[in-house]
Simulated scan of single mutants.
Amino acid sequence: MTAEAAGTFRRTQIERSDQRVAWERTDQAFFAAGACHVLAWVCREFYADRSIEMAAVRFAGERQVFHVYAVWDGWAFDHSGWHPEPQLLAVNTEFEGRPLERVKITVSLAEFCEEHHSRMPNQYWRDPLPRAREYVSRYIPPWA
Rank of each mutant, 00 (worst) to 15 (best):
P86A: 02
F30S: 06
M54D: 08
R98A: 15
Q64D: 14
E24P: 07
A56H: 04
R58E: 09
C113V: 00
P84K: 04
G97W: 02
W72G: 02
T106I: 02
P86E: 05
V38E: 03
E94H: 15
W23K: 04
A33P: 09
V21P: 06
Q19F: 05
L89M: 09
D78S: 13
G81K: 11
D18V: 13
Y69M: 03
A40P: 06
H83Q: 09
E53C: 12
L100T: 01
W23Q: 07
F30E: 08
A29S: 15
D73C: 08
K104S: 15
G81R: 13
V57K: 06
A60E: 10
E115V: 03
Q19C: 11
H67I: 00
Q28W: 01
F31L: 03
E115G: 11
V68C: 15
T93R: 12
A90K: 10
R58W: 10
C36Q: 12
E53H: 11
F77Y: 07
A33Q: 06
W72Y: 11
P99A: 11
V38G: 06
A56F: 03
Q87C: 10
A55R: 13
Y69I: 00
G34H: 10
H37E: 01
G74Q: 10
V38Y: 01
P86F: 09
H79E: 02
V103Q: 12
A76F: 01
E94V: 09
S108R: 00
R44S: 00
H83I: 03
Q28R: 11
G74V: 07
T106V: 05
L88W: 07
S80Q: 06
R50D: 01
W72S: 06
V91S: 15
G97L: 05
V68T: 15
P84H: 04
G74W: 03
H83P: 14
F31M: 03
E115F: 13
V103F: 07
G97P: 12
V42Q: 09
R63K: 14
R25P: 13
A110V: 11
P99K: 08
C43T: 14
P99R: 08
E62G: 06
D49W: 03
D18R: 14
A48I: 01
N92L: 02
E114V: 10
R98Y: 02
A56M: 03
D27Y: 02
E85P: 06
G61S: 05
V103G: 08
A60I: 00
T93A: 11
E53F: 08
R25E: 09
S51E: 14
F46T: 07
K104P: 15
A110W: 09
A56V: 02
E45A: 07
A22I: 01
D73F: 04
F95K: 04
A22G: 10
Y47H: 12
R25L: 11
A29K: 12
Q19D: 13
R50F: 05
R58G: 13
H83Y: 05
A32D: 12
V71R: 08
V107F: 02
V103L: 07
E114Y: 12
R44A: 01
R20T: 07
Y47P: 10
L100Y: 04
H37L: 01
R44E: 00
A35K: 04
A22V: 01
A32T: 06
W75H: 15
D78Y: 10
E101D: 15
V107E: 05
V21T: 12
A48F: 02
Q28C: 04
L39F: 00
P99N: 05
R102Y: 01
F30Y: 10
G74M: 05
